[in-house]
Design a protein around this nucleic acid. Structure first.
Length: 269
DNA sequence: TACCAGGTAAAAA
DNA sequence: TTTTTACATGGT
């Protein structure tokens, strides 16, 4: 057995449906009831198991990445207690008691994914990103390793545009790949400092930086106020809200999980 | 066929 | 300083 314990209850399918809902993600492949992702060069199959998930193959490095991927660093128990004080959150937690938002395990992947999703529908973003993964990633058995920053740095604008990137977005991706910024090192900085460093990059605005805080760093207070989906969700459940950013204060200090549950509630409304 | 979709930077006013 | 524009793809 290669069990990784997950706090129960854990709703494997709902938590991971993000990887299939909007289209195919070649770096996170859903196949035969399990999620495949290349970790440390190996195709790892993650499936539901009593008390957690089964990951095969498994070693300590793979386990660390799977834990990150599944969002195990979120304190869901504390959030559930907090949610009791918010009618909308309480109802959503009751309906999806085992939902746990997954994360992007890699900072470059998180930022490139944000760039692909700027302005266009997530359906379109998934299609473009999957072509990008197939073109520049290292294939394993089922999944393809997300392209490395080093390899992408050698690409050309024309290559990226042939995959569906606009010229502007191709410039953003190349600029990010070639930038003199230690993406992994951002984890040591405060939310505000991370946003300052990221938004200094061309093509990374506040929206992208907020999602980086939320979906890569798992910062509890990240609140992507500029997000169209979150805007729709907040207005759907709090029609009186006229300022999405200000509405985030209501969910302090659990803005990140609140945003994820509001988006979940909207999706399954 | 149009129009919109989980933005951003640069130009124009 | 604030407002407007260009951008490429996929679904409806």
């Amino acid at each position: 057995m290669a069990l990784i314990a997950v706090p129960q209850p854990y709703d494997f399918d709902t938590s991971l449906d993000r990887f299939t809902f909007w289209g195919v993600d070649r770096a996170n492949v859903w196949h035969d009831g399990g999620l495949h992702r290349v970790i440390a060069g190996r195709d790892v199959r993650i499936t539901e198991a009593p008390g957690g998930v089964d990951a095969e193959p498994l070693d300590s490095a793979i386990e660390a990445t799977v834990r990150k991927l599944l969002g195990l660093e979120f304190d869901l128990e504390a959030f559930h207690a907090f949610a009791q004080g918010e009618e909308v959150l309480a109802a959503t937690v009751e309906r999806f008691p085992g939902f746990r938002p997954p994360l992007a395990p890699d900072p470059f992947e998180a930022l490139v994914s944000s760039i692909t999703a700027q302005q266009v529908s997530l359906h379109a973003a998934f299609a473009v990103r999957s072509r990008f993964v197939d073109r520049f990633g290292e294939p394993a058995e089922l999944a393809v390793a997300f392209p490395t920053r080093e390899l992408v740095a050698l690409a050309t604008e024309e290559e990226l545009m042939s995959l569906g990137f606009s010229r502007r977005k191709a410039e953003y991706v190349l600029g990010l790949a070639r930038a003199d910024l230690d993406l992994g090192g951002l984890a040591a900085l405060s939310d505000a400092e991370v946003k300052t460093r990221l938004t200094a990059l061309r093509g990374i605005g506040e929206w992208s930086a907020d999602w980086f805080l939320a979906r890569y760093l798992a910062r509890p207070e990240a609140w992507p106020a500029g997000d169209l989906g979150l805007r729709k969700a907040v207005l759907a459940f709090y029609p009186e809200a006229n300022d999405i950013r200000a509405a985030g204060a209501r969910f302090h200090p659990f803005q990140n999980l609140s945003a994820h549950f509001l988006l979940l509630a909207l999706r399954y409304r």
